[in-house]
């Protein structure tokens, strides 16, 4: 029973980190139609920047802000420098953003060195809680809380604000939104910055779960984030949350109870969802 409870908690926590990473990707993909394969490496970049700030300031909040800012700025540079010329050109987008994976990774390796950065766990998140005989680190509950709050804010932004309405309208029909006299360009720029910043912040938060971050984690996280977006549905906060929790929990359970196939369970979920609902669990119907 103890293992079962610990596994559920591990799965939900892992899912929450996946949600934080994937929601930014889902936003840029849904609103701008940009297949941003550099999202994973932008995530890592935020982690390195945030952890560097945490080391100096000993502040978790400043670390999150620094991670978000660094990732947001780099994301914005990619969008303004390259992707703005490649709207509706999926293949060039894939090639350019994939190229940035290598460029940013190697720049980080060159500047920061190959050593992973250990997680920064603030003193108020340390300690552990005993659940059914299993010691469960307290910072995992903190990740759950931060993830839930972020999800609520994102949902409110997308569903209850004017900007959210424009974003949703832009996802459905960008030309019509333009025809109504709304300039989507600043919204797009803001959304790309926000999506990238969210990735950077989520790395600073999520690294507490993973123990450390290293420059080669970007591709692994990208793969899982894409799976979450496909399962949950593009451009939907709720979809990202459901997809992330589903993948997080199933992946974690399989590692404990059926380790032989644990490497493939994420893909099995992906295939099943694509067969039943190609637009994702909560995505707009194709």
């Amino acid at each position: 029973m103890a293992i079962f409870i610990a596994t559920i908690l591990n799965g939900i926590t892992y899912g929450m980190v996946l949600f934080l990473v994937a929601s930014g990707l889902s936003l840029t993909l849904g609103l701008m139609g940009i297949v941003n394969l550099s999202h994973g490496v932008i995530f890592i970049l935020g982690g390195f920047a945030g952890l560097a700030v945490a080391k100096v300031t000993d502040s978790f909040v400043l670390a999150i802000l620094a991670g978000a800012f660094a990732s947001g700025v780099v994301g914005l540079m990619i969008e303004r420098g390259f992707l703005q010329f490649l709207y509706k050109q999926e293949l060039p987008q894939v090639l350019v953003t994939f190229g940035f994976v290598y460029i940013i990774t190697n720049l980080m390796l060159w500047i920061c060195g190959p050593h992973p950065r250990a997680a920064f766990v603030p003193s108020y998140f340390t300690g552990s809680i005993n659940i059914a005989g299993t010691s469960f680190p307290f910072h995992r509950f903190a990740i759950l809380g931060i993830g839930a709050c972020t999800g609520a804010v994102l949902w409110w932004l997308q569903e209850k604000t004017k900007i959210g309405a424009i974003i949703r309208a832009g996802m459905d029909n960008a030309e019509m939104v333009g025809g109504l006299g709304i300039n989507l360009a600043p919204i797009n720029i803001g959304a790309f910055f926000f999506g990238s910043a969210l990735a950077g912040a989520s790395c600073v938060i999520g690294v507490q779960l993973f123990g450390s971050v290293n420059f080669s984690d970007g591709m692994d996280m990208l793969l899982v984030a894409i799976a979450v977006v496909i399962v949950g549905g593009v451009g939907s906060v709720q979809g990202s949350l459901v997809g992330a929790l589903l993948i997080g929990i199933i992946d974690t359970f399989s590692r404990v109870y059926i380790p032989a196939i644990s490497q493939y369970t994420m893909y099995l979920v992906l295939i099943c969802v694509l067969l039943v609902r190609p637009s994702g669990l909560l995505g707009r119907k194709i």
């Binding site: 293992i3 610990a6 892992y14 299993t134 779960l209 123990g211 644990s262």
Partner: peptide
């Protein structure tokens, strides 16, 4: 598996 980010499931098992 290679690329596993969270090792906690293996530790709890």
């Amino acid at each position: 598996p290679m690329g596993t980010k969270d090792i906690a499931p293996y530790i709890t098992a």
